[in-house]
Design a protein around this nucleic acid. Structure first.
Lengths: 210, 210
DNA sequence: CCTAATTTTGACCAGATGGTTAAACTAAAT
DNA sequence: ATTTAGTTTAACCATCTGGTCAAAATTAGG
């Protein structure tokens, strides 16, 4: 076969993603990844020399899933209101498909914040875009025009992202305390929350006289 | 000495708290805990037979730090607005003193949601209080009186807690991307955020004609 | 003091874990 | 068919890890 190779590499990454995201770097076992990929443990080290390197790859892929959409939305020409609504809609959908990634990323970054520096060094373009500066400029421009209330961009972004991500990473505790551990009910809650968060955010930055 | 015992047990718990909260259950090493406590590793197993049991104790203590204050505030006689403001003030201060706990709790619960069930079984009173039901009743009562906008209690609580907790658990990523990894700047951000979040929440539930 | 109970230690163990190696297998090129 | 390069495997290794145990040290009571 021409590409048994790529197939194996793909199976490894799939398995590694599952195991790392569920158990974390320290909890993951190379043997379990090998088993899940249906290969020999030695083959893992043939493709990715160390656990560390395999982990970095998985982390980078997980992290990169959330970057392009963010750039696309934030650098587009839409007004802030539309951007925020679209951002919430888009990322809440994305998180439904990848619910383990935020907790994984947050946890591993708390364990070793250096990971982020490494990613920035490898993918310079992420920082070069000056994503934040450009978005901040747009916000303050719209504030000046009276389209939105005066607001600190960092606080606003923290709020938007937090309201999206928190119910996902804290799912076990919220579902356990407020929803009697009913999975279906919590899924419904998350679905319904999309419009709630949109309104919540928009209300909070809409000028009083609008 | 009368109580070398309690002293040792305390030193163990202190050390275990540090190590578990920083490295998680799977990343923590009994040897490191022993070293940090200044004792022999065998002594750990003398006081807490297994790693699992020691971990459970540490988790329970960490978890319980956030319960009493929550109960006190939510079951008090104040109106909702005051409760929320006081809640935000109080918990943001608490998190400044215990910044590692939320990430620790969230991470371990994602790894093994069963932990929460065990805690509820041990500490029945937490669930018996019907904390949520009582608070929900108050909210809906004030909604009826027109003091606050119609709002879903679960969504509101998720928002309040999320806005408080998220900047703490996601600190490495937010500080890295939006604050150029400047620790002091981020501390200032968190301090300033208290009033911001209060306003943000209050604005969003204040009736339009108020 | 002497004794019994409790606390602390050093040495040790079995199993797990990340990683290595040499050999076997596969497929395409000559 | 033979060579060559890449792929896969089984067996193996050194180290780490949670946990045990018997003996030593300390403490409290009579």
């Amino acid at each position: 076969m021409v590409n048994q190779q790529k197939d194996t590499e793909g199976k490894i990454l799939d398995a590694a993603k599952d195991v790392f995201q569920q158990k974390g770097m320290t909890g993951a076992r190379m043997q379990e990844i090998a088993d899940k990929a249906g290969i020999n443990k030695a083959l893992l080290h043939y493709y990715y020399r160390t656990k560390e390197k395999l982990f970095e790859k998985v982390f980078e892929i997980a992290f990169s899933i959330f970057i392009p959409r963010m750039q696309e939305i934030m650098l587009s020409e839409k007004p802030v209101f539309e951007k925020i609504e679209f951002f919430i809609e888009s990322y809440m959908d994305l998180l439904t498909k990848h619910p383990y990634i935020p907790g994984f990323v947050i946890n591993e970054l708390n364990r070793n914040p250096q990971i982020l520096v490494n990613i920035f060094e490898k993918n310079i373009h992420i920082k070069e875009n000056k994503l934040f500066e450009k978005f901040d400029a747009q916000i303050q421009a719209e504030v000046k025009k009276g389209i939105i209330k005066p607001i600190d961009t960092r606080n606003l972004m923290t709020n938007v992202i937090g309201l999206i991500v928190f119910p996902i990473v804290a799912r076990p505790i919220i579902q356990g305390i407020m929803f009697d551990n009913d999975k279906k009910q919590y899924d419904a809650f998350l679905k319904q929350r999309k419009d709630f968060v949109k309104e919540f955010i928009i209300n909070s930055i809409k000028p009083v006289n609008a």
